[in-house]
Write a protein that binds this DNA or RNA. Sequence first.
DNA 1: CGTGTAAGGAATTCTGACACG
DNA 2: CGTGTAAGGAATTCTGACACG
Lengths: 102, 102
Amino acid sequence: MNYKKKKVITIGVVCELTGLSERQVRYYEERQLVFPERSKGGTRKYSFLDIERLMEIAEKMADGMQTFEIKRMDKQRNATLREKMLKGQINAQFGQRATKRP
Amino acid sequence: MNYKKKKVITIGVVCELTGLSERQVRYYEERQLVFPERSKGGTRKYSFLDIERLMEIAEKMADGMQTFEIKRMDKQRNATLREKMLKGQINAQFGQRATKRP
DNA sequence: CGTGTAAGGAATTCTGACACG
DNA sequence: CGTGTAAGGAATTCTGACACG
């Protein structure tokens, strides 16, 4: 759908754009911080969103954060987002019913 | 700047997304219809915009158009665009001067 | 823990050419 | 003209391991 989310970029280009080494990029995958797709042959494919993600990670690593901490922060962030979306849905439901009972 | 214009995609992925063969994609480059960048090693890098362009080309080829005709149409289209932009600039100039002489 | 590196192999891409039509 | 293909080589990527700290 969106260009930003399409996994089409090889690791070499990712390294150029992020300034990270291949070793680092693969390690962050091992630590479950990024999730590239694979070609049939097995080469990794990243999206622009993954690249942004990796630059965030690089920044946090530079600040002395450890991979597991970054992952923990992510889980927390996602949980918060889910919560907000849930509340949004509930409000939407109430809104619909209200308008349907004039 | 823009994701759509960044040349980061290898020919293999381009072929998957467009349905074209490598031979076709390279040939359209030879005929000056697309202009990929190159890595230091010499591998071609395409943008999403290039991919859209290639899909347009594929459509025109399927309609029986020849490469030189496609290129000619492009020249014409660009010339028209340049003309419009020029007119736009002229209008902008007049607009500015008009507001500066009350 | 996070990263560099040498090792060997596999996947990917490149060019120039011959073929068909 | 537009495309397929086999050929040989080069660039790119992959994994698992050892090293350092």
